[in-house]
């Protein structure tokens, strides 16, 4: 079972998790990642510029397709009963959820690893782009080197 969705409307991680649990009654372990919009720019919460809003652009068609490819790759690598990836687009405000990733398996290890893999590869492969509005005006978010390093850890297929 898999769900892949790109949506312009609000994302409710609680409701999505409840639906996911209902669909996966026989899994022993469910891992979830929720990414939400920060109100500061860059890595430093204390000194970063304030971010008041964000626009998420995507490549319609390829975004869904690429998320599907990632989910299939995760299912090849780990034993998963259910996988769900939902990504927002459009206008967001601080604390709005951006992405919801859930992976269910018989045991926790597969679920946790698959969930980490999915968000790590999503960050460097899925065609979405963030534009932040700060006190200095709007700007496109730069890709982070740390994300490339995390994604590269998964380049070799798992055993």
């Amino acid at each position: 079972m898999t769900t892949v969705r790109v949506q312009a409307g609000p994302l409710d991680p609680g409701a999505e998790l409840n639906a996911f649990l209902k669909d996966t009654p026989h899994a022993g372990g469910i891992a979830v990642f929720v990414g939400q919009m920060r109100d500061f720019k860059g890595a430093d919460r204390g000194t970063g510029e304030r971010v008041s809003a964000m626009t998420l652009e995507h490549y319609p068609g390829m975004a869904e397709r690429e998320l599907g490819v990632l989910v299939e790759e995760a299912k090849q690598r780990w034993r998963l009963d259910n996988v769900c990836v939902i990504h927002r687009t459009g206008e967001l405000l601080p604390s709005d959820p951006i992405v919801f990733v859930a992976a269910a398996s018989a045991h926790r290890a597969d679920a946790l690893e698959a969930c980490t893999f999915l968000i790590d590869w999503l960050k460097t492969k899925a065609p979405f782009w963030k534009k932040e509005t700060t006190t200095q005006g709007p700007h496109w978010v730069d890709a982070a080197r740390a994300d490339d390093i995390r994604a590269a850890r998964w380049e070799k297929p798992a055993n």
Binding site: G35, I119, T124, A126, F128, W140, V141
Partner: peptide, 26 residues
Amino acid sequence: DQTHVPLSTALGEAREVAFFPPVTGG
């Protein structure tokens, strides 16, 4: 055609080609 490729890729029968900066979703 909606698959990431290096710039050296031959166009061949390509119908759709996209150009963009590194992705920043998630």
